[in-house]
């Protein structure tokens, strides 16, 4: 089954490349608008060893990882605090529901004037964008913790912190991790958007901006997009892999039930 999927998947990728190549080469689509796939792939290959582009990727990744980490460090403890104090839990829900719908990219103009360096702007925007999915998932996860597990621990004389540490957090963790994964993909959107709008010194968005301004070669733009897609894919796969390692017990348990 696995073999079949790999063969078919490879065939699908090859097929898409061929189709794109053909429609471009035969002039079915204007080849300046949609360059042949081989040209795009060649440029993507060149970018992989281009020092400037690698610096751009590095800057984007750094802001992405930094902002994400910052929001995890704030959102999870905040979620735990709000989730375990009922009064705060009820009250904070309205505040969250008011702030969450504001699209983070709408804050780009604010961030560009409120923060002096582009790195700060990016991190602040990522932080805001990632805060909500992680916070909301933490709150919901803590609410859904099995009360029997909590009570049984309490009946053995454990206090609130022990219950939190030994029952609530471990059983909420997989759900929180899902929130982090959602946040990570939103963060990538936000960081590239910020770079496109606000500029700065380095970044994938900046590379795209400069390419567009400098004559606008579509093959270079698409080559950049390919790498952005690859980054997204790797980031997502990496987080799933981490989740699998961290929560092996969880999947074992849920499979046991099913």
């Amino acid at each position: 089954m696995r073999f079949r999927r790999i063969v078919y998947g490879a065939a699908g990728v090859a097929g898409l490349v061929v189709v794109l190549e053909v429609v471009s080469r035969t002039g079915l689509v204007d080849d300046t608008a949609l360059p042949p796939a081989s040209t795009v792939l060649r440029e993507a290959g060149r970018l992989a060893v281009d020092q400037d582009f690698l610096v751009d990727v590095g800057a984007t990744l750094k802001a992405w990882a930094g902002g994400l980490l910052l929001s995890v460090l704030v959102a999870v403890p905040l979620g735990v605090l709000l989730g375990s104090v009922p009064v705060l839990n009820t009250a904070s829900r309205a505040l969250v529901e008011l702030c969450r719908p504001i699209p983070s990219v709408a804050l780009i103009p604010l961030a560009t004037i409120a923060f002096s360096t582009v790195v700060q702007q990016k991190m602040a925007l990522i932080f805001y964008a990632c805060l909500w999915p992680i916070l909301v998932n933490t709150l919901y996860a803590l609410r859904d913790v099995d009360p029997v597990a909590k009570e049984s621990l309490r009946s053995f004389g454990f206090g609130t912190p022990a219950v939190l540490w030994r029952v609530s957090l471990p059983s909420a963790a997989p759900f929180i991790a899902t929130g982090v994964r959602i946040a990570a993909s939103v963060a990538l959107i936000v960081v590239i958007s910020t770079e496109l709008v606000a500029g700065g010194d380095d970044g994938v968005g900046l590379y795209l901006n400069e390419t567009q301004a400098g004559g606008g070669r579509n093959d270079l733009l698409l080559a950049g997009a390919c790498w952005a897609g690859a980054l997204g894919l790797v980031a997502n796969a990496g987080l799933i892999w981490l989740e699998r390692i961290a929560f092996r017990w969880q999947s074992a348990r849920s499979e046991g039930v099913a």
Binding site: V204, N209, Q212, L221, A225
Partner: peptide, 14 residues
């Protein structure tokens, strides 16, 4: 996995 804003410059060109 391609972050959609990445394609904005391309779509502007086209």
């Amino acid at each position: 996995a391609v972050p959609p804003p990445t394609l904005v410059p391309f779509f502007i060109m086209v």
